[in-house]
Design a protein around this nucleic acid. Structure first.
Length: 300
DNA sequence: CTAGGGGTAAAT
DNA sequence: ATTTACCCCTAG
């Protein structure tokens, strides 16, 4: 009757995931209040978040529509509650029939030892937006500034700038960013015009999202959720295991990036893959740093 | 408030 | 038919 149905946008999903990584699953209200995400999730309620997370989890896990097919085999045998969950995760990006209970679980994490990354983020897109937002430059920020910001806040691969350039170009072409004389600024709200309960906000623009071709992400979505799963696994790994996984991720990211470079001209698919891999690697490294920062053995 | 079990109905 | 955004209700 009243609510037509508001599909979750990528931004919202990203914010939710980031929120879960930052505050933990279950802290819906906290995530909602976090200024970091409130901007994107202000139309959602804590219950919405919970339900959405449930849907996402169910999907990510397996394919049993939505049964209770979740208590399946959570194989992470031996060693009950010791720190050593020897998950045999050797390769990072692939694996289909995967374990990992869908429920991202309540991280029995940090709390005591390490504060843990205060914000490991996931996607270059988000990093870019975050940089622009936090830099708060009235007329936008230029590539160098953005790059510097990201490099300071996170870890960046050697060819980061190249990727960044491609990404900026791509986002600009898609109307997500507006470029004005070498400076980039975030395009006017890519979504949400009005909805049922709209707090105090003047509606100054509808969703003028009129890109010719919307998202090209189809195949990459899968990879994307895999990142989340892997990330969740990593949270429960020992520093050694995580380090190995992270190194692996870094290596893969570099490989993917190299590919992207080759086809850099108009690469789209390769670039996307590189982005995904890079994103995971970045998050991985971030996670590690939050821990005890064992010396990484990243091969240059 | 959160976890979950259920359910409805709109999109696809 | 499935998916999936939302709702409702109950027990902690």
């Amino acid at each position: 009757m009243g609510a037509p149905k508001q599909k979750w946008t990528q931004e919202e999903e990203a914010a939710l995931k980031a929120g879960v990584i930052k505050h933990g699953a279950g802290k819906w209200r906290t995530i909602l209040k976090d200024p970091e995400f409130s901007g994107v999730l202000y139309l959602r309620s804590n219950v919405d978040l919970k339900d959405k997370w449930r849907n996402m989890s169910v999907m990510a896990n397996g394919w049993g529509s939505r049964d209770k097919a979740r208590l399946a085999v959570k194989r992470v045998p031996q060693v009950p509650k010791q720190d050593e969950n020897s998950i045999a995760l050797t390769t990072v990006v692939h694996s289909d029939e995967d374990i990992v209970d869908a429920k991202p679980l309540v991280d029995s994490n940090d709390t005591l030892k390490v504060p843990v990354p205060k914000r490991s983020i996931v996607r270059l897109d988000n990093l870019i937006f975050e940089a622009i937002v936090n830099l708060k430059e009235p007329s936008g920020s230029n590539k160098t500034t953005i790059a510097t910001y990201i490099e300071e806040q996170y870890w960046a691969p050697t060819d980061f700038k190249r990727l960044l350039s491609a990404k900026l170009k791509y986002l600009t072409a898609n109307g997500k960013l507006i470029k004005v004389k070498r400076k980039y600024r975030i395009a006017p709200s890519p979504a949400f015009p009005d909805r049922r309960r709209n707090p105090s906000m003047l509606l100054l623009d509808g969703r003028q999202r009129v890109f010719p071709k919307v998202e090209k992400d189809d195949t990459h979505m899968l990879t994307k959720s895999q990142i989340d799963l892997e990330l969740e696994k990593m949270r429960n790994m020992t520093p050694q295991e995580a380090a190995a996984a992270a190194a692996q991720a870094v290596a893969e990211a570099e490989a993917a990036i190299a590919e992207a470079e080759e086809a850099a001209r108009e690469a789209e698919a390769a670039e996307a893959d590189a982005e995904v891999a890079q994103a995971f690697a970045a998050a991985a490294v971030k996670t590690l740093k939050g821990r005890s920062n064992p010396k990484m053995m990243i091969r240059a």
